[in-house]
């Protein structure tokens, strides 16, 4: 069971309270009609799917109900940090130095 820290509730809570919501920081195109087919493909279907650090969205569905983002290692499933939606992806080197 993963323990996930909701940045709004400021508490580490069991995975069962949360719903995964896919890769984070994928911005909807500002001017959709200008996009080529390849750009649409990249926006809709291409995901980074890294073996390692992954920025992803979660929703505290059985808690405060809000979306937030997380950095997680996809090999160990360990969370490095969680942060409110809308904030930029944290600098990993700073996070690791702080530990």
């Amino acid at each position: 069971m993963l323990l996930i820290n909701c940045p709004y509730c400021d508490d580490a809570l069991p995975e069962l309270e949360f719903a995964y919501a896919g890769e984070a920081h994928i911005a909807r195109p500002a001017d959709p009609s200008k996009l080529s087919d390849e750009e649409w493909r990249d926006f809709l279907f291409i995901r980074s799917n890294p073996r390692g650090l992954h920025a992803e969205r979660w929703r505290h569905i059985h808690g405060c109900g809000r979306f937030f983002n997380a950095l997680r290692d996809t090999v160990s499933d360990r969370f490095l940090t969680t942060y409110p939606a809308g904030q930029p992806r944290p600098d990993v080197t700073k996070l690791e130095a702080a530990e």
């Binding site: 069971m1 993963l2 069962l16 719903a19 995964y20 996809t74 090999v75 499933d77």
Partner: peptide, 13 residues
Amino acid sequence: DQYVSYSQRGGLP
């Protein structure tokens, strides 16, 4: 499982 992972384990829930 609901999240992307390469762990070859998966979660107990």
